[in-house]
Amino acid sequence: MRTRIIAKLDVKPPYVVKPVHFEGLRKMGSPVELAKKYYEQGADEVMYIDIVASLYQREIVFDEIEKTANELFIPFGVGGGVRSVEDFSKLFHIGADKVILNTYAVQENPELINQAAQIFGNQAVVVNIEAKKWDTWYECYTDCGRIRSGKNVLQWAKEVEERGAGEILLQCVDSDGRQRGFDVELSKLIVESVKIPVVVSSGAGKLEDIKELIQYAKPSGVAVASVLHYDKLTIREIKEYLRTCGIEVSK
């Protein structure tokens, strides 16, 4: 089984930004140009997350998403500010293959997961879980680590699977953007607790971090952002390195 290497774009339209520890934003380039660059480097997928749509309660910026989709011949996951079946439908029609849900599902209406899964199929529904570590448990956050939900990450992961989500994107509020390694314990816990694929994000700083995560937690995919945006690593380098470690990845 090949572990997917996914390029993640956190977008504050019209720019890809890099939240550091989910706060402070740095402009990294345009989604179109970066998506194309990572596609050409051999990314298995691209994820595009509008990180301010929910927070500012504004409409999804469809233009930028469509332009980005046009550059890609690999799966394209899109999220941020998704609130209805109509949003799902619009996103698929402009080129999304998967829609990534967070705030609305966790804070207001988890039923949207069920509805979307039944209409569009499980494989098209990804739930983004932003986990914040407390002493004895992990709490689900939303809006880029700004808002608490009171929900327990482990229970929520099982619930979204039960409701029909086809994939979990696990982000760690504490390690995001810091490039100091993943939360491998949490990753392993979630991967082993659900049957659906889990993509782990937040924390890649060097090649070894990615290898350790894959070997220890066995996620279905790893999403990387900072190391790519800062040109510290390319997708190709990551894949070549993983291959030399005996980890299967696609071409």
């Binding site: 089984m1 298995d44 499980n122 994939e167 049957k195 659906i196 279905s220 995919g221």
Partner: peptide, 10 residues
Amino acid sequence: DAKVPHMGFG
């Protein structure tokens, strides 16, 4: 005996 949905290159 693997994650479902099956997602990825093969």
